[in-house]
């Protein structure tokens, strides 16, 4: 599974793309994956609205992620 990080999430993680293969037991719920990521990168937990996309579609916490899927972590941005 590939995770794309955008905005401040990219800065927190330090990379725009991270591949996860063996660290995660698939299938995993979006909500559980989010909690695991916050555990790994605690600063992600400080973002009030963190949108998550599963295969380019806005995902809810109960959706299941499998090994071939692509996840995107999209924080809000305010600059103009």
């Amino acid at each position: 599974m590939k995770i794309l990080f955008f905005g401040i999430a990219k800065d927190i993680v330090g990379k725009s793309i991270v591949e996860f293969q063996n660290e995660i037991l698939f299938p995993i719920k979006v909500g559980t994956l989010k909690a695991d990521l916050i555990n790994k990168y605690p600063a992600l937990g400080d973002i009030s609205s963190l949108a998550i996309a599963l295969n380019s579609r806005y995902a809810t916490d109960d959706m299941l992620v499998s090994q071939q899927d692509e996840i995107a972590i999209i924080p809000p941005v305010s600059g103009g």
Binding site: G7, K10, P76, V77, G79
Partner: peptide, 29 residues
């Protein structure tokens, strides 16, 4: 439209019964 560093976000909201900004980011940061 909104910016962060080298990134930009863009969408059209509240058009023809479509989603709104709160559908994307429900809680103000």
């Amino acid at each position: 439209g909104a910016l962060y560093g080298f990134e930009g976000q863009l969408s059209v909201f509240n058009y023809n019964e479509g989603p709104t900004y709160r559908c994307l980011f429900p809680t103000p940061p």
